[in-house]
Write a protein that binds this DNA or RNA. Structure first.
Lengths: 214, 214, 214, 214
DNA sequence: GATGAATGAGCATTCATTCAT
DNA sequence: TATGAATGAATGCTCATTCAT
């Protein structure tokens, strides 16, 4: 139940691709700078300098600056998010014996930790989603499919035990995610470093348990 | 209980300032284009063309492009949002006789309509907030003060009637806002035009009533 | 019967257009450099420097480097060539009283002088024609129409006097032009400065008179 | 009297040089692309891709891109053109028995076919000649020497028979070439595929015979 | 006040060329 | 010998900003 953080997953993802060391460092520099200053305010020269390579190298594999952005986001969309979601689902299923309240507390805490650990990356994603909504669309579809199939039985079992309101499981997921998002977005945007995770978890769970009881 | 939409308020706001017709049209053009393409991807020439003025005029009053952005956001932050919040508070206070559930339904619906009516403007705010978090900070502080003083008595009365959980009123506000934000953000980002307002209101309220009952 | 040379016509043409002094000098610098080094080997910075303006100015009116080339060639294609052709036709018609041999000598000499006076400009045209054949197409059509209507009667009168072979007048024009082109192209390409105009005129005319007699 | 076309000669020429298969394919790719898009608009990467080799290989033998161009043009200038000219001269000499008119018809037709068969290659040569006039100089000198020595006797014999004007043989050659060039250049530039060779030959010869009769 | 020509630093991108493997 | 990643100068082009009229 120990989780790999996104940065490590990202680095691993790079290793599997057929990229040279320099190209890898270009991607890392891009991630850093896009998160720090936003895509539009990061010049390819900035990236080249931080990566310790020439500008030509930046374009050798990624063709365009946008290609670079895609290459930075691709692993998040196509590999890391699903894998993290998968890990999450496995964890959830391993907790079936728990009561719904314990389960919820675990799940919420897990996601909060995950989101706050990767504040920077989340910021890029939010920026890009606002500019290109289809990213959000693809992501929700992708994660939706993944979660629904895995989580359905779990919710049914809680519903059978009378611990969970008998809504459609997607609605429950949406509700939980919505509440978490609503709580965390200010913290992500403000790069709030001193969020009290336990207190936040408690606050969110107390409310969710009320709202989701039958 | 009829609300002025943001665009009209914006135009009115412009009228009160000591700006010439040309300067006004510059601000309007900026609002339109920033919402459409984002701040970074809008050139001052674009603005000048849409406003029907010369490039020089764009800089006459607003000095820099960033000054223009500030001038576009200022009325939202310093005037329109507070005024809309004030209207909203007045409406809420006028409904004191209702039960909490009716009150909540009204409030939620009102905010959803407001947010969806001004999707474009919301998008700029989100973009800018992600880039410059202090905007979010200022806004929350500002609205927080305004709402707290106005809404406190209202919540206490509902709490006395046993219709509302006895949390701190700010926590209740934060919770309600968080849930609404969590629900609406995807629709705002995706400029979703066909949101079923009644269904969404019902879904949110059903959940909130559960979660906020004592 | 005195002819304005292309450079003067070009300058005049510029004066009529609504261009600033700087833009005019950009066009002149472009003409010079394109002729000297060819389009591809001339950078916009080269042009800016020679014109004594900033690079931005180069693009202000002409949008792209290709736009600049078009602006340089346009007056040749749409204004100067036709006007020169018109002048030429008028001159020819004014010489009707002469014998065909005198007429031919005059015409050939006139065109040789014209071509050699504007060697540089001719070089650009040749380069561009090789790259974009439709320029040649447009030019031949344009000049063809102009010459045919004007020259037909003239040739008929010479044919009636038994001084000129009874070919279609377009064929005669094509033949004369072809011979001149065949003779001059080496000199234009090599920017040959010491062409003996009288000797060349004699050589061409002697041959053409033989070939074009009935 | 059947002629090998330039492309085959080119390939043969490559075979004789001590080049590897890869180098040969680099030269072929260069010829193709330079003809298609011009020297300046062809990148060494384009060439490498079409040749199916790496970029490094392109530079292994030819050192620079210009070296590549020289290597492409060298066989034309130093080998193919002279050889073709030689073939042509031999053919001409084999026709001594004919009348001048038959001889001319054959010669003109032969050159037209040759030029039109190799339109693409001609285009490169024209482009390069305009940019670097010394190519034209070298070529004319080279061909001049070759033709003069071979053709002098032939012309004298026709002149003795009273079929050919008693001009210097170089002037006659220049005249014939000039007329052909003047006729064909438009077709080469426009890559005109549907030239009626017989009609053109007739037209040119009819005129040349008039012009070159004593 | 308004204009729009002019600026010049900055940007993404290309490309001939080199060199370690 | 062949490769292709790396280079970095050069290029076409953009854009916020200034200023003379």
């Amino acid at each position: 139940m120990k989780h790999t953080d996104v940065e490590t997953l990202f680095a691993n993802n790079l290793d599997t691709a057929n990229l040279s060391d320099k190209q890898r460092s270009v991607l890392k520099a891009s991630l850093t700078l896009f998160a720090q200053k936003g895509y539009e305010n990061t010049s390819t020269l900035d990236i080249a300098k931080l990566a310790g390579v020439s500008e030509g190298t930046v374009f050798k594999h990624f063709k365009t600056k946008d290609g670079l952005l895609q290459a930075v986001l691709k692993p998040f969309l196509q590999d890391i998010f699903p894998r993290v979601a998968g890990e999450f689902v496995q964890d959830l299923q391993a907790t079936q014996i728990l009561e719904f309240s314990d389960f919820l507390r675990f799940a919420v805490r897990d996601r909060i930790v995950y989101a706050m650990d990767n504040r920077a990356e989340m910021k890029i994603m939010i920026q890009e989603m606002v500019k290109k909504p289809q990213i959000l669309e693809e992501l929700t579809t992708r994660l939706g499919v993944l979660l629904q199939s895995a989580i359905n039985q779990l919710f049914v079992s809680y519903q059978d035990k009378g611990e969970l309101v008998k809504w459609d499981s997607m609605r429950i997921v949406r509700t939980i995610c919505g509440v978490i998002v609503g709580y965390l977005i200010p913290n992500i945007i403000m790069s709030d470093e001193c969020l009290d995770i336990d207190a936040t978890t408690n606050e969110i769970c107390e409310f969710l348990l009320h709202g989701l009881q039958p």
